[in-house]
């Protein structure tokens, strides 16, 4: 006999596993701090690549001015300006990533908690069914 309540709960679990569950399970392998740190490191690397690409475009766009002033340029100032811009960008994106992924982890954790609650309800139903089956067997004997 199919238990409708159990099927309903198991369907919810299956739908969750099919959609957000996979990503949430992956996230749950990490502690929050590790997860956020991992994403921040990825962001720093990607931001560095993006900054280098942007810098190359800016240099190309100002190539004439650079060539004209190649001997007159104050290189330490230019260097510190570029480094400062890079650091500001990296810190901004690192903070942004920290906030975004902390929130994502929180939501993912909430969804997983709900998933496990439903799972425990399914387990209880199964235990109850098993008890009933045992009792029926006893009566049968």
């Amino acid at each position: 006999m199919v238990n409708n309540e159990k099927v309903r709960l198991m369907t919810k679990l299956a739908v969750y596993e099919k959609e957000e569950g996979r990503e949430d399970m992956r996230t749950s392998n990490y502690f929050r701090s590790d997860y956020v740190r991992h994403e921040i490191i990825k962001t720093i690397l990607i931001t560095t690549v993006g900054f280098l690409l942007l810098l190359s475009l800016v240099i190309l766009a100002n190539l004439n001015a650079i060539i004209d002033n190649v001997l007159k340029m104050n290189y330490p100032v230019v260097g510190w300006t570029i480094l400062g811009a890079y650091l500001i960008l990296v810190v901004f994106y690192a903070v942004l990533t920290g906030i975004i992924y902390r929130i994502r982890y929180m939501y993912s954790h909430g969804r997983l908690a709900r998933y496990y609650r439903i799972l425990s309800r399914v387990r209880r139903i199964e235990e109850r069914e098993e008890r009933q089956r045992d009792e029926e067997e006893e009566w049968g004997e």
Binding site: I46, T47, V49, G50, L53, L54, S56, L57, Y93
Partner: peptide
Amino acid sequence: VLFLICYCF
């Protein structure tokens, strides 16, 4: 390069 910058940032 422009597309890559859009992606990175």
